[in-house]
Amino acid sequence: MDQLDTLWSEREIRAVLQRYCRGLDRLDEELAASAYHEDAHDDRGVIRGNAHDFIKQIVPVLRDAYTGTLHTLHGTTIEIDGDAAGVETYCTAYHYRESDGTKRVEQYAGRYVDRFERRDGAWKIARRLVLIDWSLVQEVPLDPAEAQAGFNPSRRDRSDASYQVLPLQGPDAPTL
C-alpha cells in the first residue's frame, strides 16, 4: 500500500466514523447503518449481534427516550494492513432526557474498537466492540429552552439544516 492509498484510506475510515455519529444524532437509520457492512457484528456488552439489527433497535430508542443526543469523536488510531484496518476511536456521547419532571444529561465516555474492511473499494465497519471508560448522569438546573433562546434550532431528522448542504454528490445532492 503506497502512502497516498494509506492517507486516502485513513480519510475514508474517519468519514465512516463521522457518518455513524451523524446518523445517530439525526435519527437517520439509513445513514448510521451505512457505516457497517451488511454482515457486520456489533458488541456493546448488553447488546450483541448484527450491526444493522442494532441500528434498527437503537434509533427508535434514541427518538423516544431522549430529547437530544450528541456523539463526539476524539483521537483515532488507525493501522491498515491491505484491505483490513484496526481502528480505536475515543468517543463521548451525551444524551438529554426529561423524566419524572427532572431534566438530566447522561454522558458516556469510551472507545470504539473496530475492524474495518475495504470491500468493493468501500471501507466500512466489519466488527465493533464498544468499551465504556466512565459514565456520568447530571441534573440540568437551567431550562434548556431558556439556555437556547435566540440560537438556531437543531432538528433530529432530515429537516435539520445540515441536510441542505450534505451530501454534496449523488442524486440527493442539494443545489447550492
Rank of each mutant, 00 (worst) to 15 (best):
A109Y: 13
V87S: 03
C91H: 05
E30Y: 02
E98L: 01
I78K: 14
G121M: 06
E38H: 10
A122K: 10
A51N: 08
T102K: 11
L62A: 01
Y94G: 03
I80Q: 11
D64E: 11
R26N: 03
R44P: 05
A33G: 12
V105G: 06
H71Q: 13
A40M: 07
R26G: 13
G49A: 11
F54H: 15
D83P: 12
E98S: 12
D53F: 01
N50T: 00
R104C: 11
E38F: 04
G121S: 02
R26C: 10
G101W: 09
F116R: 07
H74Y: 15
G23N: 02
T67Y: 14
Y112G: 05
E30I: 00
K56H: 15
S99A: 07
R118M: 14
H95T: 06
Q18Y: 04
A84L: 08
Y112N: 10
Q107W: 14
K124D: 05
R128N: 01
N50G: 02
H41Q: 14
R48V: 15
D42I: 02
A65Q: 14
L31A: 14
V46T: 06
Q57V: 03
Y66H: 15
H95G: 07
G82Q: 06
G86Y: 11
A85W: 13
L27S: 07
D42A: 11
V46H: 01
G121F: 03
R63N: 07
D114L: 06
D53C: 03
L27I: 04
L24E: 14
T72P: 12
H37Q: 04
A35R: 01
D120C: 10
R19Q: 11
Y108A: 01
E98C: 09
H95D: 01
I125N: 04
K124G: 06
I47E: 13
I78L: 04
N50D: 03
N50V: 07
L31P: 06
A122F: 11
T67C: 08
Y108P: 03
Y112M: 06
D43H: 10
A109I: 14
K103T: 05
V46R: 00
